[in-house]
Design a protein around this nucleic acid. Structure first.
Length: 111
DNA sequence: ACTATGACTCCCA
DNA sequence: GTGGGAGCCATAG
């Protein structure tokens, strides 16, 4: 097993996501900005999608409009179900989710 | 090298 | 609220 390089992007994303405290959320775009440009938003999503690590709270990452976006739950093939799980996980942490949406004005974690 | 896909975002109708 | 289109980037085939 060699694959150490080229995985830097994913690793970097995970490191950032791990910084998000309980009860707060961030967005794909905000995380992307930490790479210098909000254009990485989509790639960030891809990275989290591939993530199966338990120490990366990917459920704390939502879309720029506060809605859930996706969630694989650590496995593959979860579509709309994933959003519900994600929503529940956030509620358990104290994040208010109203109509499938988070009020970023109050719950967005600013790095 | 090229095309297709997707846990995205922005803009406009 | 809904829907369409464009732009972006990493990855898979």
């Amino acid at each position: 097993m060699k694959r150490k390089n080229n995985r830097n992007f994913d690793s970097a994303v995970y490191e950032i996501v791990k910084m998000i405290p309980r009860g707060k959320v961030s967005t794909y775009g905000e995380i992307a900005k930490k790479f210098g440009s909000p254009k990485y938003a989509r790639a960030v999503g891809q990275a989290l999608k591939r993530n199966r690590r338990k120490d990366v709270p990917c459920h704390r990452v939502v879309r720029s409009d506060g809605r859930m976006g996706g969630y694989s739950g650590g496995y593959s093939g979860m579509g709309e179900e994933g959003s519900l799980i994600k929503e529940r996980l956030l509620r358990e942490e104290g994040v208010e989710v109203i109509n499938g949406r988070v009020d970023l004005k109050r719950f967005l974690f600013r790095f």
